[in-house]
């Protein structure tokens, strides 16, 4: 009987070993371990055995059954593992294929430059002031110390709609309007960006419509040296920590003294290159101490209050920063241009 069990065991283990599918193993399980299987048959015949033999054979029969069960389980696991592996193998993808693009646009470079400047001044306690693009002659010129017939009006040939109404030629009228709203009491600390218009023929360096951004501070004891401090902070933030600034006397009707600010060339560091026209310096903005007439016209006592103002062109700054060679690109909106400012 033991021999018979021994033989069954070997036969079953062989079959298990040779099986390649789960189904086969199921069949083996049923045929050897099932209720009608040979091992059960063997055990059924246990009654005929002597009491001495019975526990020995019984134990052996269990041993055989366990061995077959263990072999089956192991083989099943093996086949399942293989099946999973095969499935995973089939599921493999080419990870180098391009991903599904997320459609994403970006800001216009001029907006990017303006917001960068705004944000810098916001951290210094400025607010952003805005005003109309169509202005009165008064706010655009007269309140800024440019009476009718002033030669400096020529510097900014204007688009007049009527004798008294025009497209603003500068963002400075916002300064005049803001000061007026303060009713002669400081401090005023504003930055004002916006579109302005001048009668220029459009070419690579001129545009009849362009942007300006101006700053204005009016308070007691505001000095030219403070302007220097603010502009130095601005220059370092916008163009790099190691920038130096230089103020040169200049002329604007609404400031006195007036200055122009150059920064040391960010390309060559001041040695001279094509960007700075071999001077080592790049002209960035105009500024000055608010003209007493402008303060008085806006209701400020020019003996008590002083102030500074500065103004610059975002186009120029963007052109310098990104190396853009034609101002018209800003207004043509070619996608190949716009898309270049994703991280601006």
């Amino acid at each position: 009987m033991q021999d018979r069990l021994q033989a069954l065991k070997e036969e079953a283990l062989l079959k298990i070993q040779q099986a390649n599918e789960l189904k086969e193993l199921q069949e083996i399980k049923v045929s050897y371990l099932g209720k009608k299987g040979p091992i059960t048959e063997v055990l059924k015949g246990m009654g005929k055995l002597s009491p001495e033999e019975r526990p020995v054979i019984g134990a052996y029969a269990n041993e055989v059954r366990d061995a077959i069960t263990a072999a089956l389980d192991a083989k099943i696991r093996q086949l399942e593992q293989a099946a999973i592996e095969e499935k995973l193998n089939k599921e493999a993808i080419d990870v180098t294929l391009p991903g599904r693009p997320v459609r994403k646009g970006n800001s216009h470079p001029l907006t990017a430059v303006i917001e960068e400047i705004e944000d810098l001044f916001l951290t210094m306690g400025f607010t952003v002031a805005e005003g109309p693009e169509v202005e009165t002659d008064y706010y655009n010129f007269e309140a800024l110390n440019l009476p009718k017939g002033h030669p400096a009006r020529d510097m900014q040939d204007s688009f007049f709609i009527t004798e008294d109404i025009l497209l603003r030629t500068q963002t400075s009228p916002v300064q005049a309007r803001t000061m007026e709203k303060h009713h002669g009491r400081g401090p005023v600390k504003i930055i004002s960006p916006g579109k302005v218009y001048r009668r220029d023929d459009d070419d690579a360096t001129h545009s009849h419509q362009f942007m300006q951004i101006e700053g204005l501070v009016v308070d007691e004891n505001v000095r030219l040296s403070d302007l220097k401090g603010v502009l130095e902070t601005f220059a370092k933030k916008m163009f790099g920590e190691d920038r130096k600034i230089r103020l040169r006397p200049s002329f604007f009707p609404f400031t006195e003294p007036s200055v122009e600010m150059d920064i040391s060339c960010f390309k060559c560091g001041g040695k001279g290159c094509s960007i700075c026209k071999h001077t080592g310096w790049i002209e960035i903005l105009g500024a000055g101490m608010v003209h007493p007439n402008v303060l008085e016209m806006a209701g400020f006592d020019s003996k008590k209050y002083t102030g500074f103002a500065f103004g610059m062109g975002p186009e120029r700054i963007a052109m310098l920063k990104y190396g853009i060679d034609d101002i018209r690109h800003f207004y043509t909106n070619d996608l190949r241009f716009l898309k270049q400012f994703k991280k601006a």
Binding site: L122, T123, G125, T127, V128, P187, K189, V222, D226, E232
Partner: peptide, 25 residues
């Protein structure tokens, strides 16, 4: 006076104004 004195000789100072929060409207 300033320009003949030299703008490069004017010191750099930092604004002392009443502290107010800036910010966008």
């Amino acid at each position: 006076v300033g320009r003949i004195y030299g703008y490069d000789r004017i010191p750099t100072t930092y604004l002392v104004t009443e502290s107010r929060p800036g910010g966008l409207s």
